[in-house]
């Protein structure tokens, strides 16, 4: 023990700046901080980073949302009075905010079930084939690893008024077209995001599928269960923990929606029909200079996501809880 510490410290202790006292009072300090107190030093940059850049702003967001907060030049001292729930009242009575929550609700109703169903089906199929497996797996990641800004370009091209999709649909093409139709804009955004993120969720399900023992399938086929029955009675319950995770992550992604309404529907158009809460945050907070209202909207959004996540966990998690 003492050999380890006395030989370990002179070298690594150097950059720490304070190796001397540690060397003089090794035993007591050592035992108090654990056998390798240097671990604290190794963790320090990360811990400081998390506290300063993530944890502090989290509290700051709540603080801002309860005060009359506005932007000032750096180092200007101004009075920012506590206003209680005033910002929250402003947020909740804002029709644009209400509309954006409705929009994101439509988004989730389409996106979350579709994501779960398609990624499980495709992961299950991917798990069964041996040919071209690498090719398939790769083709599913490609949208996920590509910048949304890039893919939005081609979706705009495909979904425009006289785009390829409408050409193929001929007389069935919706009028007004997809992204400028107030009934179809949000569903189109939801489809886009489902398509974009699916590869990631397929990976999650692929990992989960490896945990289902093959004996279950073998004995089921001995008992004469067909493939569909096997899928429904073995695979679906077997990946339930992954399903909880996938619904949760899909919900969080949905709540973060910004790039797509900003670019795909030109700023939440038509007429706010595809505006997302984060887009409204950007509008109210940074364009119109009301960070306090935007912060309150952020808090409301996060509370909403937590509530939805709890409900989902009950629904998807089933009897295990």
């Amino acid at each position: 023990m003492s050999l380890r510490s006395s030989s370990g410290n002179p070298v690594t202790g150097k950059p720490a700046g304070g190796p001397a006292d540690r060397r003089l009072v090794p035993r007591k300090r050592k035992n108090f901080l654990g056998p390798q107190p240097l671990g604290l030093l190794f963790s320090a940059p990360y811990v400081i980073y998390v506290l300063a850049v993530l944890a502090f702003p989290l509290g700051y967001a709540v603080y801002i949302s309860f005060h009359d907060f506005f932007f000032t030049a750096p180092r200007v001292k101004v009075d920012r009075p506590f206003v209680g729930f005033e910002n929250y009242i402003t947020v909740l009575s804002d029709p644009a905010v209400q509309r954006s929550f409705l929009n994101i609700g439509v988004f989730m109703i389409i996106n979350v079930p579709l994501t779960v169903a398609l990624s499980l089906l495709l992961a299950n199929a991917l798990n069964r084939v041996t040919r071209l497996k690498t090719f398939f797996r790769l083709s599913y990641y490609v949208p996920y690893v590509t910048a949304s800004v890039a893919v939005v370009g081609v979706w705009l091209f495909l979904f425009q008024q006289n785009g390829l999709l409408n050409t193929l649909l001929g007389p069935l093409a919706p009028a007004p077209s997809w992204l400028v139709n107030s009934w179809l804009a949000m569903p189109t955004v939801a489809l886009y995001v489902t398509w974009k993120q699916l590869g990631f969720f397929i990976l999650l399900y692929l990992a989960a599928l490896q945990n289902i023992p093959d004996e279950l399938y073998e004995s089921a086929s001995v008992d004469g269960a067909n493939k569909w029955a096997q899928f429904w009675n073995i695979t679906v319950p077997g990946v339930r923990p992954a399903s909880v995770l996938v619904t949760l992550l899909a919900t969080i992604t949905g709540a973060n929606l910004f790039t797509e309404p900003y670019l795909l529907t030109g700023g939440g158009g038509p007429d706010g029909a595809s505006a997302s809460p984060v887009f409204i945050m950007y509008q109210r907070g940074l364009l119109q200079g009301n960070p306090d209202v935007a912060a309150a909207l952020g808090v409301v959004l996060v509370i909403g996501v937590l509530l939805i996540a709890l409900i989902q966990k009950r629904l998807v998690g089933g009897k295990e809880d």
Binding site: V53, L54, F56, P57, L58, Y60, A61, I64, F69, F71, T72, A73, P74, I252, A255, N256, P277, V278, M281, Y282, G285, L286, P291, A294, A295, G298, V299, L301, V302, V305
Partner: peptide, 16 residues
Amino acid sequence: IPFQLLLIPLYVMIVR
């Protein structure tokens, strides 16, 4: 931690 909650405070801190 959801990024949307950090958006405004981070903007205030880093930019302002």
